[in-house]
């Protein structure tokens, strides 16, 4: 018969106790050891999303580009606000915001969409929300390439500071993974969460400097008090988007007095989100 037993697994046989809950460190170690699983889930989601569509991946670029065009028109002509390089500023804000919004909303469904797997197979379940964020990171990275091309086209050449987008991406990814694990967990128990998030994200779209630069607020409200400004910039996405803009468009090192606290907060949020997920994951197969 052709189905022989392997020699590899025979040698690794050992008597072990089944463990049903994991600490943060063991889970992180397991997920990084099983990076091929995370990657397989990312590839699956990308394949499924773009299979049978002619333009495939380009659809993820079309939406922010269209939004950029309409928002530029609205801000520049309808609202008559003169801002230099408005279109790139908006595009920069939009692709970072799209990464954030899609990352959160996709994370929400990440456990429910894999109902069969969660109920029937053992695997490190944090891989589900993590892989969704990685998938959106790939979209974001490719959109950034388009942004760089656009920048070059209008003669605003990015200099060495553009390397700043790498730490910024890492900060945003940690932030998203932390939030994503919390909402994935909540949404699995209470399906209201996605509706709440959609509403909140709409509010935050305007409360975040996506379609306008934060500097506009300084100009509009001369006495824009420092407390208010701090409050505004401690919205992590406000700081992150402004940092992208200053590194890519203004060729300036981002304002560290905001960026460093946000980076620390993102890391803490990642840890908290991961722990919340680990604390509840054993209930998933029973409630979905």
């Amino acid at each position: 018969m052709s189905m022989g037993m392997p020699n590899s697994s025979q040698s690794t046989i050992c008597w072990r106790r089944q463990v049903y809950s994991h600490s943060l460190l063991t889970s992180l170690a397991e997920v990084s050891r099983r990076w091929e699983l995370v990657w397989a889930l990312v590839v699956r989601d990308l394949k499924v999303r773009y299979r049978n569509s002619v333009l495939g991946f380009f659809w993820s670029l079309v939406t922010p580009l269209l939004q950029m065009v309409i928002l530029t028109f609205v801000v520049k002509y309808a609202m008559d606000v003169p801002i230099a390089n408005l279109s790139v500023k908006i595009l920069c804000g939009l692709i970072a915001w799209t990464f954030f919004e899609n990352g959160i909303l996709d994370s929400c469904d990440s456990v429910l969409n894999n109902r069969d797997l969660v109920k029937k197979v053992y695997f490190p379940r944090p891989a589900l929300p993590l892989s969704v964020v990685v998938g959106n990171l790939i979209h974001f990275a490719l959109s950034t390439v388009v942004l760089l091309v656009w920048l070059t086209a209008i003669g605003c050449y990015p200099d060495r500071l553009f390397l700043f987008i790498i730490p910024l991406m890492i900060i945003q990814t940690l932030l998203l993974m932390g939030l994503g694990m919390i909402v994935a967990c909540l949404h699995t128990f209470y399906r209201d969460i996605k509706f709440v998030l959609q509403a909140l994200l709409r509010v935050f779209f305007f409360a975040t400097p996506v379609m306008y630069p934060a500097a506009l607020l300084h100009d509009k409200f001369g006495d824009f008090s420092t407390t208010l400004e701090r409050l505004y910039m401690y919205n992590p996405m406000a700081t992150i988007i402004e940092s992208y803009r200053s590194a890519l468009l203004d060729h300036q090192v981002p304002d560290m007095s905001f960026l460093l606290p946000i980076a620390a907060a993102s890391l803490i949020l990642f840890i908290i989100g991961y722990k919340i997920f680990l604390g509840h994951e054993w209930q998933f197969p029973e409630v979905i």
Partner: peptide, 12 residues
């Protein structure tokens, strides 16, 4: 290992 037992252990 898909379902967590209330009490007890599994070895394998």
């Amino acid at each position: 290992r898909v379902i967590k037992p209330t009490t007890g252990e599994v070895y394998l």
